[in-house]
Amino acid sequence: MTGAVHVTGPARSLQRIAAVAANTLREARRNRVFYGMLAAAVLLLLFSVALSELALADQKARLVQDFGLFSISLLTVATAVLMGALLLHKELERKTLYAILPKPIRRSEFLVGKFAGLCALLGVQVGLLGACWWGVLVLRGGAMTPALALALGLQYVEVVLVTAVALFFSALTRPVLAGVLTAGVFVVGRVVYVLQDLLSAPKGGFAEVPVMRALGKVLVAVLPDLSTFNVADEVLLGWPVPTDYVVAALGYGLSWTVLFVALALVLFERRDLT
């Protein structure tokens, strides 16, 4: 329309997504939840040092490894749940959305930008905590091995998926409920493999009670198996994690993430911004 405005084409689309992502990242940097979770994770990592004093000499580094992975996973997922559930709500509540969406930006670009910005922030969080964990490992006579780095990387894939789930619920309902539902998906997703075992067992409630069996099947079908991204046991026991497995886990994580973001998009596209 006007001389200097060009809005079509993939490059322009990426530019808009990047602008929203950068703005989301800039906003999140000022968020107390982020710093609170970061501080809590650092405290837990330091606590693992104290805890390791109670362990046998050859188990000290392993305890720090185990506890470190657990702490980083827990608090990064908590950040994803809290910030993801509020992602759209804050824009609507503060009415900042009304100055953005009338501009030449698609809702899909806005949503993907918000998601990318939050994922970038969580990447920074995992990176910072990973560096801190590395320091603690060195302090306890261990080291950051490629296998540990891989375990951390897969945890990040899980966090991205949980963020997508939070985004979906954020587009669907109010933030408190969105947070609760996302946390529920995370908890059940982490143990969905147990449910699969129970369903395939010849005896027990899930095998014999039709209602439970149907419910179990539905849960297994609609929830991602988050244990896919947990290779802590293998890494800590020194077992190799095959490349095929890593590639499959990445594909699995990406597929579920795309699905949840797409569902969020469908909801957001249909929404009247009153």
């Binding site: 006007t2 405005v5 809005v7 100055a99 009338p102 501009k103 030449p104 698609r106």
Partner: peptide, 11 residues
């Protein structure tokens, strides 16, 4: 979005 490119909006 091309339609909105030529619009200036104040909420």
């Amino acid at each position: 979005i091309e339609a909105r490119a030529g619009v200036g909006y104040l909420p």
